[in-house]
Simulated assay, not measured.
Amino acid sequence: MAVVMGVIIALFQLSSALEDSNYKKGETYLKYESEFASDISRKMGLVYEYHAKRGKLSEEEYDELYPLDKFLETRNSVQEFITRLSACGTYEVCPSEHVDNLVCSLSKSMYIDLSMKVSWPPKWKIKFSEPVFYEIKINEHCGIWERFKFWYLR
């Protein structure tokens, strides 16, 4: 009887520990969701805006509104966020299924935005081909069907 009671108590403790672990993972992930909502989504919009406004403004207007250093800072902030979020899922600090969904979605969006054929200001001396960082994240975090739809059906 004592052995059975010991096993039951151990199972309750294990269940409680797993529940606590899941709660902490969820709490950590919510911090990333909050950061995305308050900062990163705006920066992703700004990266898109840099591309969309390129052919619509004169060189002077574009230089004034969209300086190179601000573009690079914004793009790097998004990339850093995705790297940290990806690591959070990889090391099981965050729930991996939620991380995979968000990283997959963000990486596909940034890949599309950064792969646009844009003629950057010549003085920037930069060219973007297919952004490899986002390609890697898509292949790591998107399911087989999502990758197939993205790479072959778009």
Rank of each mutant, 00 (worst) to 15 (best):
E27Y: 08
Y152C: 08
M5A: 14
M110D: 04
D69M: 12
S21E: 15
V78W: 07
L14P: 01
I126A: 07
K53R: 09
L11H: 09
S105Y: 13
S96H: 05
M5I: 15
T74M: 06
K149A: 11
S107T: 01
Y32W: 03
E140N: 06
K70V: 14
R154N: 08
K137Q: 05
I40H: 03
T90C: 02
T74Q: 06
E140L: 07
Y111W: 10
W124E: 10
V4P: 02
D63G: 14
E19K: 02
E92V: 05
E146A: 06
A37L: 12
E73P: 03
T83P: 01
A37K: 12
L46V: 02
I136H: 01
E135T: 03
V99N: 03
K25V: 02
V93M: 13
E33S: 13
S38W: 03
L85G: 04
E49K: 09
M5Y: 07
S109T: 07
I40P: 00
V78P: 02
V132K: 07
V47N: 00
P121G: 09
E73C: 06
M110T: 03
V103L: 00
E92A: 10
R147S: 03
K43P: 04
K56I: 10
K123R: 14
K137V: 00
W151T: 07
Y66P: 12
T90S: 09
M5T: 15
P95V: 03
I40K: 02
T74A: 04
V132H: 01
S16K: 14
Q79R: 11
A37P: 01
R54W: 02
F148K: 11
Y23Q: 12
R147K: 11
D63R: 15
G6C: 11
D113T: 02
K149V: 12
Y91E: 07
R147H: 04
I126C: 04
G143H: 03
S15M: 14
H141N: 12
V78H: 03
E146R: 01
P131D: 08
S77N: 14
E146C: 01
L57Q: 07
G89M: 00
E73T: 13
H98L: 15
P67C: 05
I136Q: 02
I144M: 08
S119W: 00
F36D: 00
L68W: 10
T83Q: 07
R147C: 03
L14H: 15
A17E: 08
D69W: 13
E59R: 07
C104Q: 01
T28P: 00
C88L: 10
R42E: 02
I136S: 01
E97T: 09
E35C: 07
Y152E: 12
M44F: 11
S86P: 14
D20H: 05
E27C: 08
L85R: 04
R75L: 08
K117A: 10
K117D: 15
D100A: 15
D63Q: 15
K123N: 14
L30R: 13
W145G: 10
Y134T: 05
V93W: 09
V99H: 00
D100M: 06
V47Q: 01
